[in-house]
């Protein structure tokens, strides 16, 4: 196992750089595509040499650039938190959307909007952290306390159940307080309405969450070998798990509060990354961030193209991409047992 990793370190660096370049390119394409197409050259100029008098420059600076950046960040966050979850639990199906995280965050957001309509953006973000955390905790508890322990199936079913429950309760609040539109937005997932404020919120929480994830990445590799081995190697599992959960909550909470329920990114990206990058989480975590960002920027682009001029919820697009993959995992030995 080790030899493969050492042998191809250069290749992995090259792959990461290629991914980075691809993100750059797709962000550029994403910015240039829209209700009025803007030339790539003008896109470049608007970023490098902003001229507030040109409408196209303003559209780019105020709407399309923050949107594309938000997409990249949200994708990266979801992918990394999925990777951390899968590594810590050794569970192939662990990921934010399967585990009802997004439903939990949406639940907290609807409650906040219903009872404290004057709540600030920061308050909403904080609420979505708490909601996401509560949902994960619930799903984990149901899975862990059940007979036979936390199998992938138990986790998936517990996620479905808790998710449905939270969604049902939030639907009731949404219907009663006329928040259907907000609710629909979070449940479908979308990036319209993102602004520089969203980018700032994402960056702020992202710096913390990503750094924590990177710091513990080596320990997650050890943890992914199993609790016993990891304890045998002298690692303090509890400490690492607490840090891992902390980073998962920060990352998904931020992503959900900005983009709503964007399903399956956190499930599929870590799997693809593991396939390409091997089993070392020091590689998996940064590469997951890159691949996740790329996937979501492209999905957002597709969401705008499918039914132009209307937007399709990006969550529906990622689900369509993610489901075949989920089915593949479900058929595989790891999911089937």
């Amino acid at each position: 196992m080790r030899s493969i990793i050492n042998h191809s370190a250069i290749w992995k660096t090259i792959i990461n750089f290629t991914a980075f370049f691809a993100i750059f390119l797709s962000i550029a394409i994403s910015i240039s595509y829209g209700s009025t197409d803007i030339d790539l050259k003008i896109v470049w100029q608007a970023v490098i040499n902003f001229n507030p008098e040109l409408t196209s420059h303003q559209v780019i600076q105020e709407i399309r650039l923050p949107r594309a950046l938000s997409a990249a960040l949200v994708g990266a966050f979801l992918a990394v938190s999925g990777a951390v979850m899968q590594g810590m639990t050794r569970n192939a199906l662990a990921s934010p959307s399967i585990m009802g995280v997004t439903d939990g965050a949406a639940f907290a957001l609807v409650i906040m909007l219903a009872f404290f309509p004057a709540v600030s953006n920061l308050g909403l973000t904080a609420a979505s952290f708490i909601g996401a955390g509560a949902a994960v905790t619930l799903v984990f508890m149901v899975g862990s306390f059940s007979k036979g322990g936390l199998t992938p199936v138990k986790l998936a079913l517990a996620g479905v159940a808790i998710g449905t429950m939270l969604r049902s309760i939030s639907s009731i609040f949404a219907l009663h307080f006329q928040l259907e539109k907000e609710m629909g937005f979070w449940l479908a997932g979308g990036l319209d309405g993102t602004s520089w404020t969203s980018v700032r919120i994402l960056l702020l929480s992202g710096v913390v969450g990503l750094i924590v994830a990177l710091i513990i990445s080596k320990s997650i590799t050890v943890l992914s070998l199993g609790d016993d081995i990891s304890t045998g190697l002298g690692q303090n599992n509890l400490y690492i798990k607490i840090l891992g959960i902390f980073s998962v909550l920060i990352l998904t909470g931020a992503a959900v509060s900005i983009a709503g329920a964007v399903g399956f990114v956190g499930l599929i990206v870590p799997h693809i990354t593991r396939f390409i990058m091997g089993t070392d989480y020091r590689w998996i975590i940064p590469s997951s961030a890159l691949f996740g960002a790329l996937l979501l920027v492209l999905s957002d682009l597709a969401a705008r193209m499918v039914n132009a001029p209307f937007e399709t919820p990006v969550g529906a697009i990622t689900s369509l991409i993610g489901v075949p993959f989920f089915l593949y995992l479900a058929r595989g030995n790891r999911g089937g047992k």
């Binding site: 992938p152 199936v153 399903g263 399956f264 209307f310 369509l320 089937g336």
Partner: peptide, 29 residues
Amino acid sequence: TPIRLVLVGIGVNAAFSAILTILQLKMDP
């Protein structure tokens, strides 16, 4: 196996929901 059936069902369910969402919004955004 029963378990695979349930897991596949969850996945297919998610796919149908996504298609349903897209279609419905296409009809009346």
